[in-house]
């Protein structure tokens, strides 16, 4: 069953990649310039970004022992977006490296949250509510500052080559960190007491993982804008569909995330061509039915 699922996802990724790169829009085949400077960076960003949003959610859900949570619900995406808007206002050149900036700002906000909120509210059902309150506050700030709608996310049409390779570097750093020997996400399946008894410093281990998760989310948000709930839903779809512990779910979750964002972006780009629809809105539109599926299953349980 799992092999078939992997096969379906890989097939989906190949199809959407081929369509994004090669399909003629407006009756014209893509020129070499359009292929290399527009379509390829956009596809790479969608594939990597989708994977990173989904993996980020798995990490936050696991390390905070909260099933229905992702980084956007902690205000990290909104904070990162607001930070980029402010930074760019002061120093417009920073916009070129917004992916690194977004990752850094999200990690900084994570550090601030860990000083108090994540210490006292971890594992509490109030945490998602408190996080959403913070996210709404920060999001309102971004909307007022940039005259944008804020909640719908942006189009990936604005992805640059620099964005694509920057995201690749952030993704690679995260993967290398995850591969280290001590990084066992599995420990978070245990209650805190047992983790401590096994000689594991949970604070240090969770910081390590959450830095990766926040960096991933902030980096993608810098281009895509704040996307609420999508990571939560994708991570939980894999829990229901795949099962297995969190460490084992990282790869399938990344693949599902890559597929969902690349498909969403393909539709956002082509449905009303030449009008570009916001990719974030399309992603949320496509993910919402899965949320219904999860909630339906929750009641069936």
């Amino acid at each position: 069953m799992r092999k078939i699922s992997y096969g379906v996802i890989w097939l989906g990724l190949i199809v959407v990649a081929a369509l994004t790169l090669g399909v003629p829009l407006g009756g014209q085949w893509p020129t070499r310039l359009i292929f290399w400077q527009l379509r390829l960076p956009r596809l790479l960003f969608a594939l990597l970004g989708g994977a990173m949003i989904a993996v980020s959610a798995v990490i936050f859900q696991t390390t905070l022992r909260q099933r229905y949570l992702d980084g956007s619900m902690l205000g990290l995406a909104s904070g990162s977006e607001l930070g980029i808007a402010l930074w760019t206002l002061c120093w417009p050149k920073a916009h070129t490296y917004r992916v690194f900036l977004g990752a850094g700002l999200a990690i900084l906000l994570l550090w601030l949250l860990r000083q108090r909120i994540l210490k006292t509210m971890a594992m509490s059902s109030v945490l998602p509510l408190a996080g959403l309150g913070l996210a709404m506050f920060l999001n309102a700030g971004t909307s007022l500052l940039t005259n944008q709608q804020g909640l719908l996310g942006q189009s990936l049409a604005n992805v640059t080559i620099t964005d694509a390779w920057s995201l690749g570097i952030v993704a690679l750093i995260g993967v290398l960190m995850i591969q280290t020997d001590q990084a066992q996400l599995t420990f978070f399946a245990l209650p805190q007491w047992h983790v401590a008894q096994l000689g594991v410093n949970e604070q240090r281990l969770s910081w390590f993982w959450q830095v990766v998760a926040a960096g991933y989310l902030g980096a993608v948000t810098a281009v895509l804008g704040t996307i609420f709930f999508v990571g939560l839903v994708l991570a939980q779809v894999v829990v229901r569909w795949w099962g297995g512990n969190a460490q084992a779910r990282l790869l399938p979750t990344a693949l599902i995330g890559a597929l969902m964002l690349s498909v969403s972006d393909f539709f956002a780009h082509s449905l009303r061509y030449p009008v570009e629809l916001p990719t974030g809105a399309m992603l949320m539109l496509m993910t919402a039915p899965f949320l219904m599926f999860i909630l339906w299953g929750y009641h069936a349980d």
């Binding site: 599995t186 978070f188 399946a189 245990l190 209650p191 008894q197 096994l198 000689g199 099962g243 297995g244």
Partner: peptide, 25 residues
């Protein structure tokens, strides 16, 4: 080694995976 009254698993974990964590100590 201490076993409190209430013990909860927070992830989808098999028995052998849980015991493997315990044996690490």
């Amino acid at each position: 080694a201490y076993l409190p009254q209430k013990n909860q698993i927070y992830d989808d974990m098999r028995v052998k995976e849980l015991l493997a964590l315990g044996q690490q100590r």
